[in-house]
């Protein structure tokens, strides 16, 4: 008799393999992933890769790209390429950190709301509606004005404004999962509510959370750019993708000094698009029914 033994490692491997197969089918996502990895590495290694100190005046004002400064210099003579690397670092950091903050808040509120229901659910969901109904950019601007700009504040502000979507998503999932027999079985087995909520329900809703989070990362990067562009975000001299565009507000810069905004603008677009493609592919990869 031929006996086939499948151990846990192999089974996990198979599942991951299938997901990876599905992910790979999205060529754009694959390209996005490669781009994102390269950019993250460049950003991480910025202090060692960057040819110049991003905040030091290195050459003449607004010099066009040359061999010495591959993306030229900005209005005060800093190297655009070096600033770009450091800016990407900040932008990715803001994107990830703000998403982490908003996901944690959203997941906790969504879990509580969906699991306990009743008036708790009512209060949390109405509060969520309230936050959602504020004009988003205005809310961010006002908070930035109140709490002041700066890296940490930006992360916290974006984190505290972005959570309602996650909360609703998680709540909806919990409502569905809660009705499953295995939750009843847990209750019957005498498992405490906290355990059921975090160790039984939460793992079942990880996939949608992760997919949603990718879009939040993209949105957060855009928001940071918008805020910094308006001067309410990361403060100079510290570079961020947003405040690098800040200098490109005048028409003369836009038309005659494209090196000041094309690399930065393209980078934002590419980062956001890559992340969104990855999110799309993740959704398919996680969906066990999708072939």
């Amino acid at each position: 008799m031929i006996k086939r033994k499948i151990d846990k490692k192999e089974m996990n491997y198979r599942y991951q393999n299938r997901s990876w197969e599905r992910f790979k089918r999205h060529k754009l996502a694959l390209a996005g992933l490669v781009f994102l990895i390269v950019m993250s590495l460049l950003a991480l290694l910025a202090p060692w890769i960057a040819p110049y100190d991003p905040n030091e005046v290195a050459g003449g004002f607004s010099k066009a790209p040359s061999l010495q400064f591959i993306f030229g210099t900005d209005q005060v003579g800093r190297d655009v390429f070096s600033r770009l690397l450091h800016g990407t670092r900040i932008s990715l950091l803001v994107g990830l950190a703000a998403t982490a903050v908003s996901t944690v808040i959203g997941v906790i509120l969504g879990l509580i709301s969906g699991y306990f229901g009743g008036w708790v659910d009512m209060v949390i969901m109405r509060f969520t509606d309230m936050v959602m109904s504020f004009p988003y950019i205005l809310l961010v601007l006002v908070s930035a004005a109140i709490f002041g700009p700066g890296l940490l504040n930006i992360i916290l502000i974006l984190g505290f404004v972005d959570w309602p979507g996650v909360a609703r998503l998680v709540r909806g999932n919990v409502l569905a999962i809660r009705e499953n027999n295995f939750i009843k079985a847990d209750l019957v087995a005498g498992l405490p509510g906290k355990y059921i909520l975090f160790s039984e329900i939460l793992p079942n809703t990880i996939a949608p959370i992760l997919i949603y989070a990718t879009s939040v990362v993209a949105i957060s990067i855009l928001d940071e750019a918008a805020l910094s562009f308006l001067g309410m975000g990361i403060q100079p001299p510290q570079a961020s993708l947003g405040n690098m565009l800040n200098g490109a507000q005048s028409l003369s810069v836009l038309t005659s000094k494209p090196w000041l905004w094309i690399p930065t603008g393209s980078l934002i677009v590419l980062l956001v698009i890559s992340i969104n493609f990855i999110g799309d592919a993740l959704r398919d990869a996680f969906d066990p029914s999708g072939n």
């Binding site: 295995f182 019957v188 087995a189 005498g190 079942n204």
Partner: peptide, 25 residues
């Protein structure tokens, strides 16, 4: 009640297909 449930008194449900958590072994 949690001390009694699952310990000295327990229950098996009708729909076995959904009675186990799909994400754990």
């Amino acid at each position: 009640l949690d001390q009694i449930r699952g310990n000295s008194m327990t229950m098996v449900f009708q729909d076995a297909l959904t009675s186990l958590n799909p994400v754990f072994t």
